[in-house]
Amino acid sequence: MTVPPDEASGTAPSGVDADDSGWTAAIRGRLERRLPLRELLPTRQPYYVGSWVYVFGVITLAALVWVVLSGVTLSVEGPQWWHVSREGRFVNGLHFWSVQLFFIFMVLHLWGQFWGAGWRDGRAGTWMVGVVIFAASIVTAFTGYLAQQNLDAQWIAVNAKDAVNSTGFGAFFDVTNFGQMYGLHVMLLPIGVTLLVVIHVVQVRLRGVVRPLGAPPPEEDDDVTAAKGGH
């Protein structure tokens, strides 16, 4: 159990380094390089980050937190609860309005990113994950509307079945099957949306905010900076 004192620094004379080799170390090294905390949670932003348009994304995130918390409460109490109790109806109200806020601010965020062309300088992936989140959220909300167990849910099921069936997906995704829609709505789809949102936020934080349209492109390295310094 004697560990050479210099092994931790990665200069073990044997050449076999227990801390820096193997799959675990490879993953750790990669994560440390790709997801450094200083980049994930920076305390400074470029001075041009100063518009309410930047706030839509974080409000969407906040609304999603309330969507999930109110939804978890509803699912813990069971699908009948909110139809028969005042408290349940109130929590359903929280769920309904936080979903409305979530969509309102998600779309405002999308408008903001579109008009600022937020996909520039290697941020296309961030934009695309955002669009996938939008689509996944619509499917999640749709299953929620189908799981309401009221006139609205009945009518949406009767109507939507034709659209879903016309694509062939009706064979596997039966909108008139409450159990299937409820299960998808409280489990698979929210986890999917949440995971995508986490990926999206990490993408945003790692790349940082995009420069204003028309701003000079980032400099290549120190030498180029020096060369371009006088322009």
Partner: peptide, 19 residues
């Protein structure tokens, strides 16, 4: 990786921002 972002904002005035 980190250098990417440092380089991206090089020469840009950075101001405190509490995310």
């Amino acid at each position: 990786r980190p250098v990417d972002r440092e380089r991206y904002y090089r020469g840009v005035r950075m101001v405190p921002y509490d995310l």
